[in-house]
Design a protein around this nucleic acid. Structure first.
Lengths: 205, 205
DNA sequence: GTAGCATGTGAATTGTGAATCACAATTCTT
DNA sequence: AAGAATTGTGATTCACAATTCACATGCTAC
């Protein structure tokens, strides 16, 4: 029984999502046209009605990832107003997001990216840079309103913000979920806050 | 003309090193028996005289990486005595090491690791954990001699130490060398130091 | 309702890379 | 120097995955 016909636009979404799911399970290496097709419920060759190549699918996945990341930022911006709180919330949400689905680090670190066409590497670079710019902009607001110290360089602080997240996620993934993410959240944030805030919430020294 | 015969032990070293080099250039995906063999100067099938499988080669590469990482720590320990200075030196050397050869992040993040046999993931976990333990132990010395604040949790501080390095390396790789690593070194370290040191070297606030 | 377009299907093609094998050349032992 | 062990070689097999193609079927406009 053939799969019901579906508009290319919807199929593209289904395919991109299926690809992301598949990467979650099997990594970028395990990403195959056949695998995606199976998940979508069509036959491999049918996939080519909606994407020109596997590479095109990967590009779409990258777009999806970027969208997810930026959605996260937008949500946080709406939810809270104080820059420091925005950062903390963003931190929490990110940790949650990345430990649920390891696909994002998988893709970002995959050598399909590093060693594929330069286009793709550039795209990943752009995704990360864009994201960092958002974080920087939050930090900059904090500097303006005095909640973050003036001597803090937004660029560096943004990279270190990533630095709170990345190793934790890697440890989480590699340890097979053993790494105590909650504890990391509790201890890492105060440390980060101390290094940038004008008046850390708890004066411990 | 056949390649000169060479003892398995030497060949294994050549092969492991060649594999690491190849990963530097083409990533883990680009790692092929044929590619390694070409670099070593033998024919693909000859490689099986010295390794049972490609996986075995990858395992050897992991061992090599672990050795390099720990050598780094040992060297730093010998070179300097003050814990904070040890950390700073370790930071510098790490950045240098990883930006020269992107192979290490490539392997550590590769899905050959994440989605291969659990053995391998466990091995990577052990490598990272062991390394972190070393960093923790340096931090612990600092707490003992009073140069690092008592409230600093060694485990968290060690993870954040990684956090200074990881994103920088990723940015460096992804940006194709555009990211200003030297600037990061100059700005990130003081920030990190401030968050753990008892008496930061420059009081700026 | 029918022509034309969009979507789905199975078979066939092609490429790639790991692994095996029988044989050759070299080195070691004695 | 003979025989055994080690290492190197080329041809070959095997599995797997991307892509193409000719054909089938459903959908839409007129």
């Amino acid at each position: 029984m053939p799969a019901p016909k579906t508009q290319t636009l919807q199929r593209q979404e289904q395919i991109t999502q299926a690809a992301l799911d598949l990467i979650n399970v099997s990594g970028v290496t395990g990403l195959s046209i056949a695998g995606i097709a199976r998940r979508v419920g069509i036959v491999p060759s049918a996939l080519y009605r909606h994407f020109n190549s596997k590479d095109a699918v990967l590009d779409a996945v990258l777009d999806l990832i970027q969208q997810r990341l930026l959605d996260n930022v937008t949500h946080v911006r709406k939810k809270v107003r104080v820059p420091l709180k925005q950062l903390k919330l963003l931190f929490t949400r990110h940790i949650a997001m990345l430990s649920e689905s390891q696909a994002i680090p998988q893709v970002v670190f995959s050598d399909a990216v590093y060693n594929g066409q330069p286009d793709r590497r550039a795209k990943v670079a752009q995704i990360i840079t864009t994201y960092l710019k958002e974080v920087e902009s939050i930090i900059e607001s904090g500097r303006q309103d005095g909640t973050i110290r003036k001597e803090v360089a937004p660029a560096t602080a943004a990279v270190m913000f990533l630095g709170m997240i990345m190793p934790a996620v890697v440890l989480w993934n590699v340890s097979g979920g053993t790494f105590d993410m909650a504890a990391h959240e509790r201890t890492a944030w105060p440390a980060y806050e101390r290094s940038i805030a004008a008046h850390p919430s708890e004066e411990t020294s």
